[in-house]
Design a protein around this nucleic acid. Structure first.
Lengths: 146, 146
DNA sequence: GATGAAACTAATAGGGG
DNA sequence: CCCCTATTAGTTTCATC
């Protein structure tokens, strides 16, 4: 991947709908040349997905939390992993190393949804013995495209 | 925002480059009607940005960590906030409530970059007295568009 | 990688419920 | 206010060099 591809990706990170003709002007390449490079970036799975970033507040999601989770037995891990990612409020899930086993980012409408999530969903998954919830007060930076 | 708008956004979350004509078929509306709704979602800042999701591994970023940071004096907060978001490796930064003050998600090429980030960048910001780094081993879910 | 023709897609105008 | 059709303008794709 050369500097031209980097510049194409840069343009697309800013605006995923940037047209090949717009990008063409920025990188001094013909439109078909740009399209070909974009196609290769897609085929090579460098570009995984085109998407939109929505305004969470305006969509009604006012609460963002990080929840650390501990799983008590190895035999329960598979079930936990399969179940947790199915919840739409769980927008991120990582296997981590440290005091806890998993780290979740959970997006909710309000605190009653949080109560429901922790009490009725998370805690009911077999193996979840301990969790620690951290409230995110404000977002200073969130670059979703790196 | 009605059910049609929800379906338009749903299509765009899956594929930010979904054309108005494609969406038009899904929601049983004419192309101009779809375009008009999209324009309103953009103008109302419901749609904040169109972007691409890139393959981090293939871009050379093999290391993802979460770093919790404590700031020792209120007077140092402004400087910290302004400085930390300027680092391109800091892809997310949240003000949180709990044991620590800030939570960062940091994307790096390898552990030497992490060493450099913590030792030369993070720790050199005035007011940073304590930090805690959590290594993310694997990503089970990461919905960048919610 | 560039050019030019053909196909596709979007934007706009005009009109109706 | 929202939607439709028809027209016009713009963009991409394909073939060729």
């Amino acid at each position: 991947m050369d500097i031209i591809d980097s510049n194409i990706l840069k343009a697309m990170k800013k605006n995923g709908r940037a047209t090949a003709s717009e990008i063409s002007k920025k990188v001094n390449l013909s439109i078909p040349a740009v399209s070909e490079r974009i196609r290769k970036l897609e085929d090579g799975n460098i570009i995984e997905q085109y998407t939109v970033r929505l305004n969470r507040e305006k969509m009604g999601y006012k609460l963002l939390v990080t929840i650390f989770v501990d799983i008590d037995q190895t035999s329960n891990i598979k079930g936990f992993r399969e179940t947790i990612i199915k919840y739409s409020e769980v927008i991120e899930c990582y296997h981590i190393v440290g005091e806890y086993d998993y780290m979740l980012k959970v997006l909710l409408k309000d605190s009653s949804e949080l109560e429901d999530f922790i009490g009725n969903k998370l805690k009911s998954i077999k193996g979840v013995k301990r969790s620690n919830t951290i409230l995110m007060l404000s977002t200073l930076k969130e670059e979703i495209n790196r």
